[in-house]
Structure formats: structure tokens, C-alpha cells
């Protein structure tokens, strides 16, 4: 166990690995989006853009002039960086290739969920800032979905925390890795709920369509409609980071195999990295398959979809309160 702050010395070595984790998340996030787009295109018998297209898009957007609406407040220009920072910190705190990194104790899973909430809070406000109908519609729907997705995620947190006896994500992953808990009803319910929450929160198909610009179906895109240039680049990048964070969370809770438990062992680290990439690719393909095989829902059907996830996750937590055997 390395989650204990008492065992953490301020060594350069540890700092380097933590830095790697932060940068890794930042760097692979656009590629994951590109991969999902590519797989989706192939499944639809199109060739699709190259996997690395999102990087070029970010680069292009960053070099464009940013247009700010005349009615915008200072919040409009600060929000992209604020929500990017909150998402980045949250993503960097989700263990990817190794557990027990240097700052893993600074926020537990509840705090990571809340950090994603901070990012959403900032972006939802930015959507209302210019004072157009589209920004409002996006914000209105986003807060509706989030108000059911976030408690679902918290109940998932409760469930895994009760199984592992800790809310520290790194320690939970350690626990699931070193003392396998076997097949559990509660974990199965959680997996379904977490998939639903991930699809909702990252604006994927049954809930929102990242490729659409049809006004009445947009959620996330409507909220950021007024953004352009480098501001839009930050928002897109943060969206990719959020997707990476959610898929990493699923990987770390449900397929923790291969993660390195000590930063001392370079071989374990290498194995951890390779398995992490494999897991991300697998989950990315799964997301693409889900996206092409289901239709987008009406807005008020989404509340049933996410509300169902909340109910499942609550049930999982309740089962564990009844008996640890579930």
C-alpha cells in the first residue's frame, strides 16, 4: 500500500512518474477521440479521418483568432481554461498504468467526481454567458443530465469504496488487483451504471451526438456554440480528457489487470503502460460499437436512462450495506 501519506517521501523519481501520468493523459486524449471516430467510420463502411486528426484540429483551432461575443463577460474568456484545468486534474488523478502515484492521496474518488462537477459548473455557466437561446438550451439539458449522472457516479463510488474499504481510487485499484473480489452482483450493477454515466457525461450517442449540429438535438455542442479559436480548442481538448478519464476509471475499477503497483520496477511500469493502452483501445472500440448500434434518445428519455443507472448503482450500494457478500 502506498496510498498512505506517511509513506510518501518527496522524491524526484516519484514526481517524474506523476508528471508522466499527467502528460500521458493530456497527450493520448485526442488520439482516443480519433480512434473512436475511425472505428465508427469503418463500422459504417466509410474510410474516416486518420486517428491523429484531432491533434491537427486542435492545432488549427489554436492558431485561429478567437471571436468573443460583444455581450460576453470576463467569465466567458476564463471558463475554457478553468474547465480544462479541472478536467485535467481529475483525469490525472485516475490511475492509468500504475497505482500509488505521488499525489494519489490528494483527492479520493468522491473528490474526483466533484472535480468533474467543477468543470461542468464552469462550462454550464459559460453556456449562459452570451445570452443566446442555444447556450441556454445546452446548459439546461446539461444540468438536467448531470443532476442524475453525478449521484449515480457517487453511488458507484460508495459501492467500490465499501468493497475495498477505502475511497482512495488508487487504493481501491490496489485492492481489486491484489485481492481479487471475484464476480460480484454489486460490481456488475456498477459496471452497467458506470457505462451509462460515462456515455451520458461524455456526450456520446444515446444521449448526445458529438458529430451533430442539428440545433434541437444538441446538448454539449449547443452549450459551447459561441466559442471559437483557442477557447474552443481548450473545450474540445477537455472533452477528450473527460472521455479518457471515464474510460480509465472503468479500466481501473473493472479490469485492473497489469497495473504496476510500485514505481520502483521499470518492467512492471512497461507492462502497465502496454496493458493500459490495450484497455483504452478495447473500451474505445466498445464505445464506437455502442454508438453505431443504438439510436439517439429524446431528451426526456435520457432521464429514464440515467435515472436507471442511478437506481442500479443505489441498489448495488444497498446490497453491500445488507451484506458484504454481494
Amino acid at each position: 500500500m502506498t496510498g498512505d501519506p506517511a509513506l510518501i517521501g518527496l522524491s524526484l523519481h516519484e514526481l517524474v512518474w506523476q508528471g508522466c501520468q499527467m502528460l500521458l493523459m493530456l497527450v493520448i486524449a485526442p488520439a482516443l477521440v480519433g480512434l473512436i471516430r475511425k472505428v465508427k467510420a469503418r463500422l459504417l463502411s466509410r474510410r474516416g479521418p486518420p486517428v491523429f486528426q484531432p491533434y491537427r484540429e486542435l492545432w488549427r483551432l489554436m492558431h485561429k483568432e478567437a471571436v468573443v461575443a460583444e455581450t460576453a463577460s470576463p467569465l466567458f474568456r476564463m471558463a475554457p481554461y478553468g474547465q480544462f484545468a479541472a478536467t485535467w486534474v481529475a483525469a490525472a488523478l485516475v490511475p492509468s498504468f500504475a497505482t500509488g502515484l505521488m499525489f494519489s492521496w490528494s483527492a479520493d474518488l468522491i473528490a474526483i467526481v466533484a472535480l468533474l462537477g467543477t468543470a461542468r459548473f464552469i462550462l454550464a455557466l459559460a453556456g449562459m454567458d452570451v445570452g443566446t437561446a442555444f447556450g441556454g438550451i445546452g446548459t439546461s439539458r446539461e444540468i438536467l443530465f448531470a443532476s442524475l449522472a453525478e449521484p449515480a457516479l457517487l453511488m458507484i463510488t460508495f459501492t467500490v469504496a465499501l468493497l475495498a474499504g477505502t475511497t482512495l481510487l488508487s487504493a481501491i485499484a490496489d485492492h481489486l488487483l491484489l485481492q481479487p473480489v471475484g464476480l460480484r452482483i454489486s460490481l456488475a450493477l456498477c459496471l452497467v451504471a458506470l457505462m451509462v454515466v460515462a456515455l451520458t457525461e461524455t456526450g456520446r450517442v444515446p444521449v448526445d451526438n458529438p458529430a451533430t449540429h442539428l440545433e434541437l438535438t444538441m446538448v454539449h455542442e449547443a452549450m459551447v456554440l459561441e466559442y471559437s479559436g483557442r477557447h474552443l480548442a481548450m473545450i474540445e481538448w477537455a472533452a477528450a480528457l473527460k472521455l479518457t478519464a471515464y474510460l480509465s476509471l472503468i479500466a481501473c475499477l473493472f479490469v485492473p489487470f497489469g497495473m504496476a503497483t510500485s514505481t520502483e520496477d521499470p518492467v512492471a511500469m512497461a507492462i502497465g503502460l502496454v496493458t493500459y493502452f490495450a484497455k483504452l483501445v478495447g473500451l474505445g472500440v466498445a464505445v464506437a460499437v455502442i454508438e453505431v448500434s443504438v439510436a439517439k434518445m429524446r431528451v426526456f428519455r435520457v432521464t429514464d436512462f440515467v435515472g436507471g443507472a442511478f437506481a442500479l448503482a443505489s441498489m448495488a450500494a444497498l446490497l453491500l450495506f445488507v451484506s458484504r457478500g454481494f
Partner: peptide
């Protein structure tokens, strides 16, 4: 972390890319 990363992000973007900004009517 939040302060450092938001500072890094905005500094990096302004430094590497462009800081050109234009005020215009809302797009909507």
C-alpha cells in the same frame, strides 16, 4: 493543481499559438 494547470494551459496556448481576439456580435 487547479491554479498551476489553468495557468499552464492559458500561458501555453497564448505563447505557442495566437492571442488574437476579436469582439463581434453573438453567433447564435
Amino acid at each position: 493543481f487547479l491554479l498551476v494547470s489553468s495557468f499552464l494551459a492559458s500561458w501555453g496556448v497564448h505563447r505557442i499559438a495566437t492571442r488574437a481576439t476579436r469582439r463581434a456580435p453573438a453567433w447564435d
